[in-house]
Amino acid sequence: MKPALHPHEDDRLRELRRYGILDTDREREFDELVEIASEICEAPVSVINFIDQGRQWFKAEVGLGVRSTPLETSLCGHAILQGDYIEISDTLDDARMADNPLCTSDPGFRFYAGSVLKGANGLPLGTLCVLDHKPRALSEHQRKVLRVLSRHIMRQLDLRLALDQEQTLRREVDHRVKNSLASIGALLFMKARRETDAAVRHALEDAGSRVRSLSSLHAELHELGGQDLVSTKSLFMRVETDLRQLLPEGIELSIVVRDGGVGPELANSLVLIVNEFVSNSVKHAFGSGHGSIKVEIDAQPGRLALLCRDNGTAGAAEAERAAKGSGLGSRVIQSIASSMNIVPKWRASGDGMELSLDGPIPRPGR
């Protein structure tokens, strides 16, 4: 069944276009959010989508591989007509989707959950949704995280719009972003502490750690003023402090940085890589619960040398799996390294995992 138009469709489309988000490039901060949603909800597909005239367009996606699809087959086109949140345990039992080729094909989308993205005027613009190929249901904490992430998406868009409209509000806008990231990180860690399922707890802790790392980078960028470069030493002092607060008892962390300045994009990449390595080490390296993680960073104009290692139990098989990008963390690292034209090297021989990135990088501003 083709989705019906919203009762205030013209106003809704005007509001969507006011945000200027349609047909923009992919951005890591949105890609990170769909990765978090997919991991926490244990769903193979997660999408940030906006319902445009005749199509649905994807700002970010995991597991889909396209940027837009026709409105005729849109599941989210139905979702924006029904409140703030919709969950369909089995799409083939829902009259609106039972004849949808996206659901009836093999493998089709048999499960759908979406939190509606609303503009400042309250009209629905799209959804943050997760999909699965089997009927199922989300837990209460998964639903809550999906709602929180969807609100964060709209806060990001609202803040961008405010920045475009009034540059004099930049500092206030930056504070709001920082507070939003801190709030999401705190919520994720609060849910993790209360979660009894170990796998879900680890997923929540990973998500919270990523948000905290992004918050550290944001705080550093906020203090740049009119400068173009981020101090790697100052940035990773924040990151190390944040990560140490999250490490289990018995795990030590040391980050040594050669002082230098890098562009914001490279700074973001370094933060994400270090965060993923530390998270993976905490989850997989230390069977006894005791160990150490060491990071060395030398990011100078035109060249990067990054070395991460732990003294855990990883061997050659684990290093080979990491090099193939078998886990989410190693896939994130591979993707970031690829964007810098550097091949990450993984080594392990039974006494710990080592990751190194070494090579030329574009100079800031080029």
Rank of each mutant, 00 (worst) to 15 (best):
Ser269Val: 09
Leu246Asn: 09
Gln227Asp: 12
Ile273Ser: 03
Ile251Gln: 03
Val239Cys: 09
Glu240Gln: 14
Asn275His: 08
Phe236Arg: 11
Phe286Met: 11
Val239Asp: 10
Ile273Leu: 04
Asp228Trp: 09
Phe286Gly: 10
Gly261Cys: 12
Ala267Ile: 03
Asn275Tyr: 00
Glu265Arg: 08
Glu249Trp: 04
Gly250Met: 04
Gly225Lys: 04
Gln227Arg: 14
Ser254Cys: 08
Gly250Lys: 04
Asp228Lys: 15
Phe286Ala: 10
Glu223Tyr: 00
Gly261Val: 12
Asn280Ile: 10
Ser281Pro: 02
Ala285Phe: 01
His284Cys: 07
Asp228Tyr: 09
Thr241Met: 11
Leu235Lys: 01
Ser254Trp: 01
His222Ala: 15
Arg258Gln: 15
Thr232Ile: 07
Leu217His: 13
Glu276Ala: 12
Glu249Ser: 13
Val282His: 07
Leu247Thr: 07
Asn275Leu: 00
His284Met: 02
Asn280Val: 09
His218Met: 09
Val230Phe: 05
Glu220Gly: 09
His222Ser: 14
Val274Arg: 05
Ile251His: 04
Glu249Phe: 08
Ser215Gly: 13
Glu223Thr: 04
Ser216Asn: 07
Gln227Ile: 01
Val278Gln: 01
Gly263Met: 01
Leu247Gly: 05
Leu247Gln: 03
Phe236Thr: 13
Gly260Glu: 11
Gln245Met: 12
Leu253Asp: 06
Asn280Pro: 08
Phe236Gln: 12
Glu220Thr: 13
Asn268Glu: 14
